[in-house]
Structures are given as structure tokens and as C-alpha cells.
Amino acid sequence: MFNSSCCNYSADTVSSAVITVSTLGFFILFSVVPFVGARLEEYARVSPEELIRQKLQTYSYRFLVHSFESESIGRFMLVSICYLLALFVCLLNYLINSIYDGYILLIGSLFLVLIATGISLYTIFTALYKAIIKSKDIKDLEGYIAQTKWLHGKKNS
């Protein structure tokens, strides 16, 4: 492996470090996401009807809730983004290395980056689909909210 005489640069060491940090990040993120989810659950302290109404108000809120309310989507998205960033660092690392030591490692890490990009894009688009495309259901849900206004005796039923 390439070792530059000026700074003892080792592509493998840098990549190992990046992967180690990102693996630790994997566990940290899995711990943090439920906390973020719990913060969102504070909204559940209001009535379900009010919560549904709030959810329907903005695209960004809907995106946020859809991203985090489902643990699988929220965690998967954050973790895959974390890995994607880590792999980009690896890619950069091997790009530097390849200048001196061939392209095999560069192609390998590029392949990993493509996979991680695919996973990240898939999860992001899943969340976006839920948040935006499914918003066509809003009118129907508004109909339900109107019924609950009748239930609780509010005027604009």
C-alpha cells in the first residue's frame, strides 16, 4: 500500500478509521432516532384529531413525521446517509491513493458508494412519496376531521 514519505499516508488505515467511525455512528444513530421520535410524540399529547389535522398542514411536517414515525424508514434513512458519507470519504481516500497505486480499490469503493447511494435515494423517495404523493388523501382526511368537529360540537361542522 502507498505510503508517502512526507506524511506516512495509508489509504487502508484511513478507510479502516472511516468505517470504524461510521459503524459506531450506526449504533449512535439507532439510539438517537427514537429520541427524535419521542420528541415528535410530544405532539401525541394533543388529541388524535388535532394531531391528524396538524400533520396535514405542511409538506415539511408531513415529510418529517413520515420519516421518523416509522422507525424502520427513519433509522434506515439516517443510517444509510451516514454510510454514504463515510463511503464518500473512503472513495476520496482511494482516489488520492489511486494516483500512486492503481485503480482497483477506487473501483471497489465506487461500487460501494453506488449501492449506498441507491439505498439512500430509495429511502428518501419512499419518505417523499408518503409525504407528497399520498397528500392527495388529504381532502378525504379533512372530511374525517369535519366529522370529529360535529362529534365534539364545534360550529363549523
Binding site: 410524540e41 401525541a44 399529547r45 388524535p48 394531531l51 391528524i52 400533520k55 388523501d137 382526511l141
Partner: peptide, 15 residues
């Protein structure tokens, strides 16, 4: 009941 509505009631019940 659509799931988007159902889960809010179930979540509140769990609380």
C-alpha cells in the same frame, strides 16, 4: 379506518 388515522388513536391509547 385508514392507518394514518388509526395509529393516532392507538398511540394515544398506549400512552
Amino acid at each position: 379506518t385508514p392507518y394514518i388515522i388509526a395509529k393516532e388513536y392507538m398511540r394515544q391509547f398506549d400512552i
